[in-house]
């Protein structure tokens, strides 16, 4: 199929950037979206143009590296997938496709479609961990009884790959789905209780300092999340935060 691509081009972080039109022909419906961009880049390089910079790594939907805001949605129009798993069969011959970077003040553009998501790392460093003695006397985690429901809910939260689709989709650029998943995965387990108060207070503080917006419960993040992280995690984080604030 033949397509028109409208792609955000920006030379560097300080460049203003603009949308540029590209024509691409003979696209196979079996290509992944990133493979289609690879073909475009090959053509651009052959013409001596600068290829379009975009993030990618595993191309298996598990690393959280690929991004892109495609036709107004994070990771494109499909559900429960990252951009690398989006296939060109989801589009029609003659379509015009808008391709933009994930937009948020806390995700500044580095070049073209590549954004800096290290604000997520800093939030994680602020409390998204448990302290375990690894001197050789570490207790086997399986020796601690945990009810199945909590274990499953914790695992579901832990499947968050930190791609940032929640921030990109939210009209407020809020990171609460990401942060709540990282809070929840520990809050639901006994190992997470020891540092629970500091964890939620410090992670929320860091989230606010990074300049993410405030959640207004539109639910867009949950719909666009490639891992189906539930809004229940945000409610849990709100409870954790309230409890932690009352404790001081």
């Amino acid at each position: 199929m033949n397509l028109t691509l409208k792609i955000w081009r920006q030379k560097n972080a300080s460049d203003k950037g603009k949308m540029v039109d590209y024509k691409i022909n003979d696209v196979s419906p079996d290509m992944s979206f990133l493979e289609m961009l690879d073909v475009l880049n090959t053509e651009l390089i052959e013409k001596g143009d600068d290829p379009v910079a975009f993030d990618h790594d595993c191309r298996e939907g598990i690393c959280g590296m690929c991004s892109l805001y495609i036709n107004g949605e994070a990771h494109g129009p499909d559900r429960g997938i990252t951009t690398c798993q989006l296939h060109m069969r989801k589009f029609k011959d003659g379509d015009t496709i808008y391709i933009e970077p994930f937009r948020a003040k806390a995700f500044p553009v580095i070049k073209d479609l590549v954004v800096d998501r290290s604000s997520f790392d800093r939030v994680q460093h602020a409390g998204g961990f448990i302290s375990v003695n690894t001197s050789g006397n570490t207790q086997d985690a399986n020796a601690i009884p945990i009810n199945k429901h909590d274990a499953d809910a914790s695992f579901d939260a832990a499947t968050c790959i930190g791609c940032g689709a929640c921030v990109a989709s939210c009209k407020n650029s809020s990171a609460m789905l990401f942060v709540s998943a990282k809070v929840s995965q520990f809050a639901l387990l006994p190992q997470g209780q020891v540092e629970a108060t500091d964890r939620v207070l410090n992670m929320v503080k860091q989230m606010d300092e990074e300049g993410f917006g405030n959640c207004t419960n539109t639910g867009a993040c949950e719909v666009e999340c490639p891992k189906g992280i539930s809004l229940e995690n945000i409610a849990r984080m709100n409870r954790e935060f309230l409890n932690a604030s009352l404790k001081g």
């Binding site: 808008y98 553009v109 419960n217």
Partner: peptide
């Protein structure tokens, strides 16, 4: 919240994932 996104999307399909009211 408006300040948390300094550059707006050229194309944003809000209706795909959230209600108009929200």
């Amino acid at each position: 919240n408006k300040g948390a996104r300094n550059v707006k999307y050229v194309k944003n399909h809000g209706a795909a994932n959230s209600s108009w009211m929200s």
